[in-house]
């Protein structure tokens, strides 16, 4: 399911990313690669603050919907 469907506080594993190459590469540099465990810290109108490893990444709704996770 897309990351946008994950509820706040629940953990999930990134399965794959449907974003364009450039965005995808940037997400990978930030640690958002397939297999990474993520959870949502906060949600604001679809935009998310994501917890991955020890960092917090803010994502807009569009890019969050391109990250497919399995819980």
């Amino acid at each position: 399911m897309p990351l946008t469907m994950l509820s706040v506080g629940k953990e999930a594993k990134i399965d794959y990313c449907r974003a364009n190459d450039k965005t995808k590469k940037y997400l990978e540099d930030l640690g958002l690669i397939p297999g990474a465990i993520v959870s949502i810290v906060s949600e604001l109108g679809g935009n998310l603050i994501l917890s991955v490893k020890d960092s917090r990444i803010a994502l807009s709704k569009g890019v969050a919907s391109q990250l497919i996770v399995e819980s």
Binding site: T23, Y26, N47, S55, R56, S60
Partner: peptide, 10 residues
């Protein structure tokens, strides 16, 4: 517009 992806510092 480029998607918003930004690390939030503590």
């Amino acid at each position: 517009v480029a998607p918003f992806v930004m690390e939030l510092p503590p």
